[in-house]
């Protein structure tokens, strides 16, 4: 029996090592920019510390700190954008659909318009209806142009007016943890959401 005891021990050891190796890539990618912080820690790295006030699609004022408590997937788009923005929104919808049920209440989606002059709250509201965005988890925000610039700067998003009155802009989904710190960036319009979902799952744990 001693022999079998040793064998079992070795078996368990080997299994643990394998599991450890499988688990580490996840931690590395999810720890994109910083060390793990419990949700109650100071928010020096939170983008919610900006003092701007925004208006939601149902014309209510909102300060970004109200987004705390949920993992947020945020993108900066505008409603008259023809090519890139619909893809961005569809990526976010796919993320929403791919989330396991227990995470639905823990993850929110935020669209901030780059064109607050044209995308008034009522325009955003109509857009939300058209794109079938569930108001329970989606926030569409309109703000002062200077505040839009400030938020874009924090997220590292650049944008610029083009000849047609629209914008050339960085295509990116930003995943914020429950205190508003950037934990992951999905760059460009590519369709592979594996790492993004992983990051959301990880951020939802804290």
């Amino acid at each position: 029996m001693k022999r079998y005891g040793c064998l079992s021990f070795l078996l368990v050891l080997v299994l643990c090592l394998r599991l450890g190796a499988w688990a580490s890539p996840l931690t590395v990618t999810a720890h994109a920019d910083h060390e793990a912080l419990p949700a109650s820690a100071s928010s020096a790295r939170s983008i919610y510390q900006v003092e701007s006030t925004w208006t939601t699609a149902d014309a209510q004022p909102l300060r970004l700190e109200h987004l705390q408590g949920k993992v947020q997937v945020l993108a900066m788009v505008y409603t008259t954008c023809e090519s890139a923005c619909p893809i961005i929104v569809s990526l976010m919808q796919r993320i929403a659909a791919a989330l396991p049920p227990e995470l639905h209440s823990q993850v929110g989606f935020v669209l901030v318009t780059l064109d607050p002059v044209r995308d008034t709250p009522s325009v955003l509201s109509a857009y939300s209806v058209k794109m079938r965005l569930d108001p329970a988890s989606w926030s569409l925000l309109s703000g002062r142009p200077a505040d839009v610039m400030e938020l874009a700067m924090l997220l590292g998003i650049t944008y610029k007016r083009d000849r047609s009155g629209g914008f050339i802009h960085t295509n990116r989904l930003t995943v914020l943890n429950k205190v508003g710190e950037i934990v992951y960036r999905h760059e460009g319009l590519h369709q592979d959401l594996t790492s993004t979902l992983e990051a959301i799952r990880w951020a939802a744990q804290y």
Partner: peptide, 12 residues
């Protein structure tokens, strides 16, 4: 147990 051990080593 034997089978299990072989499989694990193979997996590793």
């Amino acid at each position: 147990l034997r089978l299990g051990l072989v499989l694990c080593i193979g997996l590793v």
